[in-house]
Design a protein around this nucleic acid. Structure first.
Length: 594
RNA sequence: GGCCUGGUAGCUCAGUUGGAUAGAGCAACAGCCUUCUAAGCUGUGGGUCAUUGGUUCGAAUCCAAUCCAGGUCACCA
């Protein structure tokens, strides 16, 4: 809660306690931003307060308003409509806020709050390329880490590669059978796509073999497991688990290609990790925790030998944590990996950016660790995001190229190039500058498209329609920034000023913009608290839109007076700065020209 | 079937701890480049906030039931 709103609440509470002997605290006062159609900056909702004054809501509003005006020097005037007390703050107050913003280079970033966060995101399988689901994951994960850092947390970004198992074994089998020693270099295919192609090939061959075995579609899933090629893959997995040198060498070689390919995509999108984990190294973890749980009698060994935990008191089921043959399953290694990270980082919060299909899994993970009495497990948070779907339903990895991350990025950059050339905006740019601009705009469009939607809501993405560049989009915000840069460039040294003349009256457009600017800090903190980048994305759009209106209505460099000019330049400069900072927290770059 | 998420304009989405006449963008239509970047600005039309009931000064928001969509309920990951 920004200071000013807290101050008003406290003042209202003070008036009610001293003048009406009401037992009321500041928290009980409801205050909102005033709706556009009414005059005012903040509105006190009088209905719940009226009973303390023994007056009708309207009269109570009047009485409180008068008392506020005399006690608070930042309140210029007020009006009462029904039970709503609208307060207008003085222009001086707002201009002082602008001065504080302008003179604070770190406006919107908070002092360290002592919180240590480990944030896991991306989590790809190494048998196929990244797709649009990973894109959403990465954008949410990266921007969330930036937002948390701005809010004062110490964040470590980690990735986990699902680099072992039956899927990569299948790619390996197909590669061995059909590739004739081809490599990404020899074919010119990006490494992750290259390996993914062999995974697709495996499934084609398996289907052909199924066709030979049976015709009934309902038996196909079962029949697939009976195919020769499927059995080969299973055998290969066993060889891998036994550490067979030849198998390991091929596995390392193919995964190496994949990592190279992934890294290119990470670079293109602009995401990074401080630490990588590999399932091949973590999949045996967790046995200690199982032992610990058995010793503490939180877990129990069933008659069949499997270790389980009873979560029926929590409304879940009995959950097996270790196979009856003593080997690990998914949850076992996640328990172990969590413990490992706690030992490595001592974090008080661990955020998993993982799709909402795994809600149940993370409930189990958190509960199991809590039952073991691990304090830090309270800080486990599953940032559960919904899937990206096509208008006809889920994207299937085999259906269509449009869900592929690299294709999507290439497409959106191509559109950026076309648009930019159409508008004749590449004059004076070198080829590399132009390419850089297409990248900035294209990625900006894609990232904003994804990030403006609340993570827990599914995104409908129609690959038939290209991502928009007008309206509520990334390029719109980028354009606004470029426009502001043109202003501040021409304004020269005036744009550097951090002192504000607080006696100058504000126009409606100036004030609307300033009020919004003053709200940035609050927005960053809200986005961090709610663990939701869309909060910030929507704020920046609002800010850009408000600026464009201001820009259209108010001459800046051609203002009537010097005082007006310097105020408007200052407003422009600060808006530009906030757009740039805010977009950076979203992982989106803003150009100075476009 | 149990549990979890969603359902707001033709489409894609906002909507703070319950607050005033539910907002944007896209699409459609009509205007604005002789002043700082028109990827912009302005205007028009478009709504049973899934349905029904409840809670209260006040409900898109909270509660209950129902309908629809998706997910999940593996010794897969």
């Amino acid at each position: 809660m920004p200071m000013i709103e807290q101050d008003i609440k406290a003042a209202v509470a003070h008036i009610l306690t001293t003048q009406y002997s009401a037992a009321i605290t500041a928290d009980q006062v409801t205050i909102n931003k005033t709706n556009k159609e009414h005059t005012g900056d903040f509105t006190v909702v009088v209905f719940p307060l009226a009973r303390f004054t023994k007056l009708a809501p309207e009269a109570a509003g009047q009485a409180i308003g008068e008392a506020l005006k005399t006690t608070c020097d930042f309140i210029a005037e007020f009006n009462v409509i029904k039970g709503f007390l609208n307060l207008v703050l003085t222009d001086e107050y707002w201009l002082t806020r602008l001065g504080k913003i302008a003179s604070n280079p770190t406006y919107g970033t908070f002092a360290p709050n002592g919180s240590k966060v480990v944030l896991e995101y991306c989590g790809p399988n190494t048998n196929k390329p990244l797709h649009i689901g990973h894109v959403r994951n990465m954008l949410i994960g990266y921007s969330m880490s930036e937002i948390l850092k701005a809010a004062g947390s110490d964040v470590t970004k980690v990735n986990i590669y699902n680099d072992r198992g039956i899927a990569i074994s299948q790619s390996m089998v197909a590669y061995t059978r059909f590739a004739n020693g081809a490599t990404p270099e020899s074919t010119g295919i990006k490494g992750d796509h290259f390996v993914g192609d062999w995974y697709v090939k495996f499934n084609q061959v398996a289907l052909e073999e199924v066709g030979a075995l049976c015709n009934a579609p309902e038996d196909k899933a079962e029949a697939k497991k009976q195919t020769k090629i499927f059995k080969e893959a299973q055998e290969l997995l066993l060889k891998w688990e036994a550490g067979d040198p030849e198998t390991m060498a091929l596995w390392k070689k193919m995964n190496g290609w994949v990592y190279q390919g992934f890294q290119q995509t990470f670079n293109l999108i602009g995401v990074d990790f401080q630490k990588d984990y590999y399932e091949s190294e973590t999949y045996k973890l967790g046995k200690d925790i199982i032992e610990e749980g058995l010793a503490k009698e939180v877990f129990y060994k069933r008659a069949d030998g499997a270790v389980a935990v009873d979560l029926t008191p929590e409304g879940l089921d009995e959950k097996v944590l270790l196979r009856s043959d003593g080997t690990s399953i998914y949850i076992t290694q996640d328990l172990g990996t969590a413990q490992l990270r706690y030992e490595e980082f001592g974090m008080d919060k661990m955020i998993y950016v993982v799709a909402n299909e795994q809600d149940y899994h993370f409930k189990v993970l958190k509960l199991a660790l809590q039952k073991l009495g691990k304090q830090w497990a309270d800080g486990i948070f599953h940032l559960s995001y919904a899937l990206v779907e096509s208008p006809t339903g889920r994207f299937k990895s085999r259906e269509g190229k449009t869900a592929d991350a690299d294709d999507l990025i290439a497409e959106v950059m191509r559109i950026a190039e076309d648009r930019t050339k159409e508008l004749g905006k590449i004059e004076g740019l070198s080829e590399t500058e132009a390419q850089q601009l297409y990248h900035t705009i294209g990625l900006g469009a894609l990232k904003y498209f994804v990030l403006r939607v609340n993570p827990y809501k599914k995104i409908i993405f129609n690959p038939e329609e290209s991502i928009d560049f007008h309206g509520h989009t990334g390029p719109f915000i980028q354009y606004t920034h470029a426009r502001i840069c043109a202003i501040t460039r021409k304004a020269g040294s005036i744009a550097e000023t951090t002192t504000i003349d607080t006696s100058h009256p504000l126009t409606a457009e100036e004030k609307e913009l300033l009020v919004l600017l003053a709200d940035y800090e609050n927005t960053v903190r809200n986005a961090a608290e709610k663990v939701d980048p869309s909060e910030l994305a929507n704020y920046i759009y609002q800010l850009a839109k408000t600026y464009n209106k201001f820009y259209h209505e108010s001459p800046i460099l051609n203002a009537n007076t010097d005082a007006e000019k310097s105020l408007r330049v200052a407003l422009s400069a600060q808006t530009g700065a906030v757009i740039k900072k805010g977009m950076k927290l979203l992982g989106i770059a803003v150009p100075e020209r476009m």
